[in-house]
Every structure is written in structure tokens, then in C-alpha cells.
């Protein structure tokens, strides 16, 4: 695996080109183009804000609902679109796989990288939101103090996502069922991760423990600490997230490399 990672360095330009292609192709022929990637989470945030403010007001403790949602939706969207994109990244490029050699992991990795670019831009837009909401609520003036936690949290999220992406990309070559299952599982995961509700809603005890085993729970709630609550993420959560990310990455990459030699025959 180490030697494989080293040989990837020779392909860094191809990786960048694949990632560029992902970004370019996604918004070709749409008028707003690249802005859709920024608009998407904002529109989702508006929908949730509307629902949970006017139709179904449940969050009396939360002072600025839009920021609350965005803090969970941004990392989730990165995770979600990376995994969905990676699932079909190998089978969708069968012509390429059959006719040209390059390390196959470049395809799912480029999908994740393209989404990382989006994610980074979204976070920059998020800073703008902070400034706007700081006018209404002075506690957001302190946001910059907690922003540096992202330097730790984003890589954790990235490697966790990448590991899962590699896993589903490889498995989908053998079982096309995966691409149908992934959508459903992601929806289940969305509701079992504290994105649209605070983690304090989750009961304690056994259920709470099981709930916190989901690495996305610890990752997303750490993001929420840094972006919304403006507190330091809990050390336990960060350690557990980092551990899961490493395990997921190693496991996903291992399976990928095991299955990879036969991709050209199976796609």
C-alpha cells in the first residue's frame, strides 16, 4: 500500500485533471454553473430553516437556526456527494478502464478531491454568513477563534469519506446493487447523524452509546462545535473520529487494491 501511494505521486497531474474534469462537467450547460455548488447547501439550509422555524418549531435553544443547519449540512454534503459520486466512478468510466492504464484509485480520489474544492469554497462563503449574523448576535464575532479546528476536522472527514468512497467504488464493480443501496443507506445515515437536530436530543444509555459509534456523529458534532456552538470539540470525539477515519481509509483502500486487478475484466 505504501509503495502504491508513492507511485501515485507520478500521477498527480492526472489526478488534478480528473478532479478538474469532475468540477467542469458537473455544471456544464447550467446557467449558474459553479454557483450551484454554493447555492445547494444554502438552499437546503433555507428549507430546513423554514420548516423548523415556522412549521415545526422544535429548537427553542438554538439562537441562529441557519448557521446551526449550515454547520452540519456542509460537512454532510461533502461526505454525501463524494460517496455518491465515487460509487459509480469506476463502472461509469469502463471505456477508460478497459483501454488505458492508470492507478484506478485516481477515479474515486478525484471525485473526493473535486468535492473537497467545493467544500472549501462553501466554508469561505460560510465566513461571510458569520459576518452577517455577527451583526445580530455578537457571539459570532468570536468565530475565528474556533475556525482553526477545521484544519484538523476537514482532513479527518476527508480520509473517512475517501475510505468509504474507495470501498463502495470497488464493491460496485462486482455488485451493481451497491449503487442502489448507497442512496438508502446515506439517507439512514443522514437522520442518524446530528445534522438537523442537536446531539443533545439523543437519549443517553445504550442507544446513545450506539448512536455515538457512528463516526459521522462524532465528526459532524465536532464540526458543529467549531462552527456553531463556538466551543472546542470534545477530545474523545476528535480521537474517535480520527481513529475511525484512519481505519476506514486503510480498510477501504485495502479492499480496493485487492479487487482492482480485475476491474478491466469486470466493468
Amino acid at each position: 500500500m505504501i509503495s502504491q501511494l508513492k507511485s501515485l505521486l507520478n500521477y498527480k497531474e492526472l489526478l488534478l485533471n480528473f478532479a478538474k474534469k469532475e468540477l467542469k462537467v458537473k455544471y456544464k450547460n447550467s446557467v449558474l454553473g459553479f454557483f450551484w455548488s454554493l447555492l445547494n447547501p444554502i438552499l437546503m439550509m433555507l428549507v430546513f430553516t423554514f420548516i423548523f422555524t415556522f412549521i415545526f418549531p422544535r429548537y427553542p435553544d438554538i439562537d441562529v437556526v441557519p448557521i446551526f443547519f449550515l454547520a452540519g449540512l456542509l460537512p454532510w454534503n461533502f461526505f454525501n456527494s463524494s460517496v455518491v459520486g465515487a460509487t459509480t466512478s469506476i463502472v461509469g468510466n469502463s471505456a477508460l478502464i478497459k483501454k488505458v492504464y492508470f492507478p484506478r484509485e485516481l477515479l474515486p480520489v478525484s471525485v473526493t478531491m473535486a468535492n473537497l474544492v467545493n467544500f472549501t469554497l462553501e466554508l469561505l462563503v460560510f465566513v461571510g454568513f458569520f459576518l452577517v449574523f455577527a451583526m445580530f448576535n455578537s457571539r459570532f464575532l468570536d468565530f475565528y477563534k474556533y475556525f482553526p479546528y477545521l484544519l484538523l476536522l476537514v482532513p479527518i472527514l476527508f480520509f473517512f469519506t475517501l475510505g468509504l468512497s474507495l470501498l463502495v467504488a470497488a464493491l460496485n464493480v462486482y455488485f451493481r446493487d451497491i449503487q442502489h443501496v448507497v442512496g438508502i443507506l446515506l439517507m439512514v445515515l443522514f437522520y442518524s447523524t446530528p445534522i438537523i437536530y442537536p446531539i443533545s436530543f439523543v437519549p443517553g444509555g445504550k442507544i446513545g452509546f450506539l448512536y455515538r459509534l457512528n463516526p459521522m456523529t462524532t465528526i459532524v458534532s465536532s464540526f458543529k462545535n467549531a462552527l456553531f456552538y463556538l466551543t472546542s470539540p470534545s477530545l474523545n470525539f476528535v480521537l474517535y473520529s480520527a481513529g475511525s477515519a484512519i481505519v476506514m481509509f486503510l480498510f477501504g483502500y485495502y479492499i480496493f487494491l485487492r479487487l482492482e486487478p480485475e476491474f478491466a475484466e469486470e466493468v
Binding site: 467542469k24 462537467v25 471505456a95 477508460l96 483501454k99
Partner: peptide, 11 residues
């Protein structure tokens, strides 16, 4: 092995 393998139609 194939000319233009990997061309993306939208690009």
C-alpha cells in the same frame, strides 16, 4: 488501444 479513449463529450 483506442483513439480518444477518455474524451469527455461535454469538454
Amino acid at each position: 488501444l483506442e483513439l480518444g479513449a477518455g474524451f469527455h463529450p461535454e469538454l
